[in-house]
Write a protein that binds this DNA or RNA. Structure first.
Lengths: 258, 258
DNA sequence: CGCAAGATTGAATAGCCTCAACGTTTGTGG
DNA sequence: CCACAAACGTTGAGGCTATTCAATCTTGCG
């Protein structure tokens, strides 16, 4: 039943519970943390590292939630470089807007993915059966609202990434990303103190922030030397959050209310 | 009645008509090009250059459409640099997702803007009265779908910007932006051949693509010298679209079906 | 016509990238 | 449980892209 993964030590529980916790943490919908959500019928699927979860051009039929691991939204450029345009963390619902637009629609008119969803680590994804979700939506409009708020926050995050990549020097970009990930992980209860499990490779960080792998590595070294972070054995610790956030020009407001 | 602006020579008509044309150009909803849309009661407002259309922290009460000019979604960084995270062109509806989430909601729980909307040129914006729009939405669900598809496309554009800024060299970024703008302008009938009116300053291009103003200028010179574009008197001409798109690694698929 | 905003140019520098080698961890099969 | 290979991380050197500063030219507009 429960998805067993790296995050168990950090308090991860089963898919339905995680989904409920995630939705209720948005301002939209405290009531979403309900039996109704927890008992949605979920189909669990696991993916190995670098496996494709949904491909560019697909029109995924159902709504999904990351239960364990990290999924990346990725696009390729001509030169074969990969740009990661978003991280989906445990508890993140993905492609709600697509689901919403495509639900109850014929095949040809469906809106399709403009990018590929790729498992950056081994991960577990839960899919909600369309029928049961539509029932729940009809019954509980506040849950619809919770999904929409989540989706708005994801867009805010994307804009903040653009600010980072476009306007901030390398070290601040990485610091900003770490602050973001910390707050997002905290929102689903996957932090312990100022530490959390971060199974990303340095290459994932570089591909997401528009930096070379080598430079990313140097930046990390520097941040360790400055005692801003500790990072080893897939665990990231923000040693001095205040100082890190100041350094990164980070403010958590865009991630929604505390 | 009609908004009189720079684009008149390029075929711009009044707000309602433009909105209808824009919506019907999305695959979602050919039927959206209807009297019903054209006759929505609009309130026109004009803004001078650099005036704020909606500020960070606002929760705009109604849905708006750019009728003339260009509005930028902007965020400031600590260092005082401004990053433009999106251009809103004539015909673009803005903040549909916010409208959707906030419609019929009390004051305190509303979702707020995480960035500022700023008039990059003199512009005219039409606001749709909430009441009449809600009526239309109830009556014509296909129009709701058209709004959602527009919003999905805006997100695709944002992802593509991230790819550009993160992974493409300066010249390709600018070329890619020009291809994007050309296709978007064409979709609302504001091109003539391969030319269109582009009232942006070089600083706007640089602020949007994460480049310095000086470098942007040099890139433009180079593109002129290579006879990829002609740009003067606020008119941009793509001299060899095929070649430019190839150079930019551009494919129009993400902007929706032709 | 004159001022101010925008565009252009040059020179020097900084930040980041690439290439290439080497060390270290992880995971797997024996 | 150990040994090995492959993936990941680290380090150095050199070069190129893009930046900054500063000055000059041009254009739009009152």
């Amino acid at each position: 039943m429960a998805a067993r993964g790296e995050n168990e030590a950090f308090g991860l529980s089963d898919g339905g519970h995680l989904l409920a916790r995630r939705l209720s943490s948005s301002r939209a919908c405290p009531a979403a943390d309900s039996e109704a959500v927890r008992q949605l019928p979920l189909t669990l699927r696991t993916y190995g590292r670098d496996q494709v979860v949904a491909r560019l051009g697909d029109a995924p039929p159902d709504l999904s939630v990351v239960v364990d691991g990290i999924v990346g939204r990725t696009k390729m450029t001509r030169g074969g470089k990969r740009q990661i345009v978003g991280f989906l963390l445990p508890g993140d619902v993905f492609d709600w807007p697509l689901f919403r637009v495509n639900a109850g629609l014929g095949g040809s008119g469906k809106v399709r993915l403009d990018h590929t969803l790729c498992a950056l680590t081994r991960c577990t994804v839960a899919s909600v059966r369309t029928g049961s979700l539509l029932d729940l939506m009809a019954e509980r409009p506040d849950i619809v609202r919770a999904f929409e708020v989540q989706s708005l926050i994801e867009q805010s995050v994307a804009r903040e990434w653009l600010v980072s990549v476009g306007s901030r020097p390398a070290a601040e970009r990485v610091a900003h990303l770490f602050c973001e990930l910390y707050h997002r992980m905290k929102a689903v209860g996957l932090t312990r103190g100022s530490s959390f499990h971060l199974p990303l490779r340095q290459s994932h960080i570089s591909e997401s922030q528009g930096l070379s792998l080598v430079h990313t590595n140097r930046v990390l070294q520097r941040m360790r030397a400055d005692e801003l972070i500790a990072l080893s054995a897939r665990t990231l610790t923000l040693l001095q959050i205040e100082r890190l956030e100041a350094f990164a020009d980070f403010s958590s407001a865009y991630l929604g209310p505390a």
